[in-house]
Amino acid sequence: MLSADLTRKIDRELTKYPPDQKQSAVMAALGYAQDEHGWLSTDLMDAVARYLDMPPVAVYEVASFYTMYNMRPQGRFKVTICTNLPCALSGANAAANHLKEKLGVDFNETTADGKFTLKEGECMGACGDAPVLLVNDRRMCGHMSHAKLDELVGELSAAADRGEGRPGFDPEHGIHVK
């Protein structure tokens, strides 16, 4: 379940903590596992639990506590836009609405082609760049005018066509995450 690349990344994280505190690496481990698999299935969490000598339920607790972990399959690109007050004061809601229209989905939904999942986020610590959004948890984009949003969607859509982004969504069964 855990690829060699994944265990190598986890092993590097493990060097940061005392040897008897392997559990400390669980957040990073789940993050990398999610990068590779797109979402955290029960089997995947089980495998991480085994790798880090943790009770599976403790991994499940962590995975479900932090909002950036995907507990269900997502589109290739998960776009999380902050709508908290400071961002809202600088056009975040308009940006979010623009995205919803453009992608034809509401928050917590995935486009039928499996390319995008749209999420509402909380403060990302970048309110000065509002509106801000996060692509697949790793890439932050700021000052998202409608034009820049259009550009981004175009770029990601093309990337998805090339098979980039994260696996996980199954367009054949058209999973809509609600």
């Binding site: 009770p55 339920v57 403790a58 499940y60 607790e61 479900s64 506590f65």
Partner: peptide, 10 residues
Amino acid sequence: GYMEFGMINR
């Protein structure tokens, strides 16, 4: 002796 219960979500 083993964590069988947990509290998920927040």
